[in-house]
Amino acid sequence: EIEQGFLPKGWEVRHAPNGRPFFIDHNTKTTTWEDPRLKIPAHLRG
């Protein structure tokens, strides 16, 4: 299961009806299937 707590500020994870997680960026009011944490360099992750 995906943990909400480690998402960047302003992001939220939800699950589509088929169970697939998607990510909501409230900063830009966009959604994506890609986990935003995967784009953060390892040394900047919490």
Rank of each mutant, 00 (worst) to 15 (best):
E1V: 10
E1F: 13
E1A: 08
E1G: 08
E1S: 07
E1D: 09
I2P: 00
I2Q: 15
I2C: 09
I2S: 10
I2F: 11
I2T: 09
I2A: 11
E3V: 10
E3F: 11
E3K: 12
E3W: 07
E3H: 03
E3M: 12
E3R: 07
E3D: 05
E3L: 06
E3Q: 15
E3I: 11
Q4K: 15
Q4A: 11
Q4S: 13
Q4P: 11
G5K: 14
G5C: 09
G5H: 07
G5N: 14
G5L: 09
G5E: 11
G5Q: 08
G5V: 10
F6C: 15
F6P: 14
F6T: 15
F6R: 15
L7D: 04
L7I: 05
L7C: 01
L7Q: 06
L7T: 06
L7N: 00
L7E: 06
L7H: 04
L7A: 04
P8W: 01
P8M: 03
P8G: 03
P8D: 03
P8V: 00
P8T: 06
K9V: 09
K9G: 09
K9P: 09
K9H: 09
K9S: 13
K9R: 10
K9W: 05
K9D: 13
G10I: 00
G10C: 03
G10T: 00
G10S: 01
G10V: 02
G10K: 01
G10Q: 00
G10W: 02
W11R: 05
W11N: 12
W11M: 04
W11G: 04
W11Y: 05
W11C: 06
W11S: 06
W11D: 04
E12N: 00
E12H: 09
E12L: 00
E12R: 02
E12D: 02
V13A: 08
V13R: 11
V13N: 01
V13S: 06
V13G: 02
R14E: 04
R14D: 08
R14N: 02
R14A: 10
R14I: 04
H15E: 11
H15Q: 08
H15K: 15
H15L: 14
A16V: 05
A16K: 03
A16H: 03
A16C: 11
A16T: 15
A16Q: 07
A16N: 06
P17V: 10
P17Q: 04
P17A: 12
P17D: 12
P17N: 08
P17C: 08
N18Y: 02
N18D: 11
N18M: 01
N18W: 03
G19R: 06
G19W: 01
G19C: 01
G19Y: 01
R20C: 08
R20H: 13
R20F: 02
R20E: 13
R20K: 15
R20V: 12
P21G: 03
P21M: 09
P21F: 04
P21E: 11
F22M: 07
F22R: 03
F22Y: 14
F22A: 03
F22N: 02
F22D: 07
F23M: 02
F23Y: 08
F23Q: 02
F23S: 01
F23T: 01
F23E: 04
F23H: 03
F23G: 04
F23R: 00
F23L: 03
F23D: 03
I24F: 05
I24W: 07
I24S: 00
I24A: 02
I24D: 00
D25M: 00
D25C: 06
D25T: 00
D25K: 01
D25H: 06
D25N: 08
H26V: 06
H26N: 05
H26E: 04
H26W: 07
H26A: 03
H26T: 07
N27S: 08
N27F: 10
N27Q: 07
N27P: 00
T28S: 10
T28N: 14
K29S: 09
K29L: 07
K29Q: 13
K29F: 06
K29N: 12
K29I: 00
K29H: 09
T30G: 04
T30N: 04
T30S: 11
T30K: 11
T30M: 10
T31D: 04
T31M: 09
T31A: 14
T31P: 01
T31Q: 10
T31N: 03
T32N: 00
T32G: 04
T32H: 13
T32Q: 14
T32F: 04
T32C: 05
T32S: 11
W33H: 08
W33D: 05
W33L: 06
W33S: 08
W33T: 09
W33V: 09
W33C: 03
E34G: 05
E34P: 00
E34S: 10
E34R: 08
E34Q: 07
E34N: 05
E34C: 08
E34F: 05
E34A: 10
E34T: 06
D35Y: 01
D35K: 02
D35C: 05
D35P: 04
D35G: 04
D35R: 04
P36M: 00
P36N: 02
P36A: 03
P36C: 00
P36I: 01
P36G: 01
R37F: 03
R37G: 04
R37Y: 02
R37P: 01
L38K: 12
L38W: 12
L38M: 13
L38C: 13
L38N: 10
L38T: 14
L38A: 12
K39D: 09
K39S: 12
K39I: 08
K39C: 15
K39H: 07
K39P: 11
I40Q: 15
I40C: 07
I40R: 13
I40M: 13
I40P: 07
I40E: 09
I40H: 10
I40T: 14
P41N: 14
P41D: 10
P41W: 05
P41R: 11
P41K: 12
A42S: 12
A42C: 11
A42T: 09
A42F: 09
H43E: 15
H43W: 07
H43I: 10
H43T: 15
H43C: 09
H43S: 14
H43V: 13
H43G: 12
H43A: 12
H43D: 10
L44Q: 14
L44E: 12
L44P: 15
L44Y: 10
L44S: 14
L44H: 15
L44D: 15
L44W: 10
R45T: 12
R45K: 13
R45P: 14
R45I: 05
R45H: 15
R45E: 15
G46S: 14
G46A: 09
G46R: 11
